[in-house]
Design a protein around this nucleic acid. Structure first.
Lengths: 198, 198, 198, 198
DNA sequence: AATGAATGAGACTTCATTCAT
DNA sequence: AATGAATGAAGTCTCATTCAT
């Protein structure tokens, strides 16, 4: 009797969920969990507030799921650096250009780290994912290679990585607000931190 | 007639106002105006919520006054760089060490720039105070001197200043949260952006 | 898509708005805007306080809308006097009988005129609507006709009208409280002001 | 040792009480008990809020005491009509001119009758004092005399009195606000109610 | 599945009253 | 007696969440 079979229904459901998560990501990333009202997400997703509750138990749950997704995407993204063309410094230069996709995820994680009203569950997830345990481990081979090629300045590569990515991370959090008060530095200026050369 | 003379009363009032503003600065800086509940400020200041209203007309007014104070302190602070000892690069190195006092002010201004629910008055104040109009103007002579002494890398000094301070600013916003996930870079690493040398 | 069609929803909305406005009119009229607590309106309308805010932006807005309605109704009502049967004095006698509907509106306007905490917008509306500009203008022909027929006492008709309606207005403000301490005069007694005859 | 003896202290206390009551009467009469803030009374009386509580237990108590005083003054005032010169109609004409002193008392009583937040005690006092029991009783001889002299229209004198004073009372409540929208009728117009003559 | 009405807890704010001096 | 700081209860308003349809 049903005009749609189970598979089709599932498809619609998935689509709706995706719709909601995309909308929520956009807004959570910019405004944080407290500054985001469900009405904003509903409007951005083009549906009623009530419907959100068919797909997610609560605002908090939605936030946590996005955090999980963001962490996974960030790790995956980090690994792609090795597939970029060129020498280590060229790989790093290309990678540093702030891409819009990753930016939202990054900002979301930043919000979760620094704002209040973040669900406990999200905090735990964030704690596990840290520069130390992921970024540094992943990028260490690249930096060692760069130092051996004399492209990168000498010194503890792990410290160099975390310092560099702390700077990049910090800039991304500023950049998201597109605040004209801050002039985003050219990538080459940032790379000086790693290379020690103009 | 009064059992407490005017001087004593004034003392109490000043103390209370200071108490409130200190508490409010701490919390506003971390949580933004929306994330900050008056109950938090009252608790931090050790008084009832009602008393806050003897000293400030509203949450918004309190926020705006703190913004004014923060801007003034930031400008004053920036000018002290010329009184520091040593060459331009040494001045800049000493200045860059993030001092806790200025950090809260800085973070507050950052919150005002990037969060929602910021009073219109605060936005206007912030707009007037920008890297361009203050920081860059103040520091231009220092950077030109540094470039002439070959301590600093060549290129447009104004752009160099705003890039460098965007980075420093961004790091301050991270640092305020004392998040262990981010390793704060050594000052010398940051200075590479300006000097182009390891 | 919607489980309730637009028409049904509109019906619910209209009903609720009507419910609220009726309840609010009753209470505002008696207690003024300061003396009226939203909890009272909500209780009288049989709904939660929160729901009031789905239909009206604020207590002030609700008050202003009621004032607008009251003014319009008063003007409309005043004009109906010419459709009443009989001579001028008979028209006026019939018209003077205080009807319950108009009474609440009248009292609301009176509250807006005399109480504190009245929204600026409401004050402006009230100022435009005054005995002079409406009541007197509308009734002047009737009184002149009454004087020509020797039914009404001689003298400046405009002054007679405003005097008479000041008295009627004043009585309405008392009457609204149904206070047994005051005995409402018979209409014929009041008409003596106009006719100068027992 | 005390620089002031008991009598002098008592004198100061009485003066202060009088000061407060005068200020309170002014404000209560205009704004009602809800619309009156203690800060207003304190300011009007030229003293601190705290001091009010040395003389009166609460806002309510102060209100009740004023009501008692107002009732007594009204009754006393009513009796003076017989000392006025002239015929009954002339006595009534003179008496009707709204005197400022009595007006405040009257308005206070009106507020107590018609507003909310009135202490139970005040309501009880008001209930005892009514047109019926005081005004009508006091004025009945005057009206009978007026009717016998054919100055007043015939009919039940008690009803005539209460009707007339309801009108006068109602006008006083309007008059207190000095609202230009209402033109206060000439006394002679009002007297038509009683005399039935222009 | 989908909507939007409806609720209620919690936030900001006011103000009568109390307290320390 | 006198002051003004200090408190807390209550009122307006917002918004996450639930409910009826």
């Amino acid at each position: 009797m049903s005009p749609l079979n189970e598979e089709q229904l599932q498809h619609i459901r998935d689509e709706r969920k995706e719709q909601i998560m995309e909308a929520a990501l956009k807004i959570f990333a910019r405004r944080g969990i407290i500054g985001t009202k469900l009405s904003m997400i509903a409007a951005e997703a083009g549906m009623s507030q009530g419907l959100l509750y068919h797909y997610f138990k609560s605002k908090d749950e939605l936030f946590v799921i996005l955090i999980q997704q963001a962490i996974q995407a960030s790790i995956d993204n980090m690994k792609t650096i090795y597939q970029l063309p060129g020498s280590p410094i060229e790989k790093l230069r290309t990678f540093t250009r702030l891409d819009n996709e990753g930016q939202l995820y990054f900002m979301l994680i930043h919000q979760a780290r620094t704002s209040d009203g973040v669900p406990e569950k999200a905090k735990q997830l964030i704690e596990q994912y840290s520069l130390e345990s992921y970024v540094v481990d992943i990028l260490e081979p690249l930096f060692i290679e760069g130092q051996e090629a004399k492209e990168f300045a000498p010194g503890d590569p792990r410290k160099l990585i975390s310092s560099y990515f702390t700077v990049v991370s910090a800039l991304m959090t500023l950049n998201i607000h597109e605040d004209e008060a801050y002039e985003m530095p050219e990538v080459d200026l940032l790379l000086r931190i790693v290379t020690g050369r103009p």
